[in-house]
């Protein structure tokens, strides 16, 4: 593995500092100390100061979250399997992320707007990813690939954000959800059997 860049070291330090004392307390001084660089260098790399540090650290963590998720489902053969495993894994990662849970509980007003800054980027990246997966499937006649990918993206983001009536830790429940509500109109053979 290559040595971490100054940028990565700084953003790691931001996460460490927030873990120790919260978002509101975050100071440039502490980040400089933790990352082992001078304040002058810190400002050269992040001229936007504290705001920029927080914004970039959050964006990087969001990108990591989705990247790790994609890695975790990489070997699964179908979009159905990837969506099922991905939803379960995403929900677990959110529940198990102590820092995220602490910020949600103690500093939601400072933290949440940051978290959603990268929202449209996430939507766009996911749509591209799901479009590529859909392209490999046997699609129902007349499916508009772009629109279908956008539809699945919306459903996926909605369920990662909100469980609603579904038990998203239960594979059977999630598979039922994915087949019936995500893919039935798009991928051949996913609509429910006749009763």
């Amino acid at each position: 593995m290559s040595a971490p860049t100054v940028r990565d070291r700084v953003l790691d330090a931001v996460v460490d500092a927030v873990e120790r004392s919260g978002l509101r307390q975050l100071a440039m001084e502490e980040v400089a100390t933790l990352s082992g660089i001078s304040r002058a260098t810190l400002y050269r790399h992040f001229p936007g100061g504290r705001e920029q540090l927080v914004s970039e650290a959050v964006t990087r963590e969001v990108a990591r979250f989705w990247g790790q998720l994609a890695d975790a489902v990489r070997d699964l053969p179908t979009i159905e399997d990837r969506l099922v495993a991905g939803i379960i894994d995403a929900r677990r990662r959110i529940d198990d992320n102590d820092l995220l849970q602490r910020l949600l509980a103690s500093e939601p007003d400072d933290f949440l707007p940051r978290l959603f800054e990268s929202d449209s980027l996430v939507h766009e990246v996911l749509r591209g990813y799901l479009r590529d997966l859909l392209e490999r499937e046997r699609l129902r006649p007349g499916v508009d690939l772009e629109e279908a990918a956008d539809y699945v993206t919306r459903m996926l983001l909605s369920h990662v954000a909100t469980a609603g009536r579904w038990d998203l830790a239960d594979e059977r429940d999630v598979r039922r959800l994915v087949r019936r509500q995500f893919l039935a109109g798009i991928v051949e053979g996913t609509d429910p059997p006749r009763v």
Binding site: V143, E147, D150, Y151, A184, G185, I186, D191, P192, P193
Partner: peptide, 26 residues
């Protein structure tokens, strides 16, 4: 995005494409 929720025909098409297939056999 993809569908204008004020356009009844467009919503109808969207519903037929993505929502009804999951339940129509039930």
């Amino acid at each position: 995005g993809s569908v204008d929720l004020g356009d009844h025909d467009a919503v109808g098409r969207y519903v037929r494409a993505y929502v009804l297939p999951g339940v129509e056999r039930l």
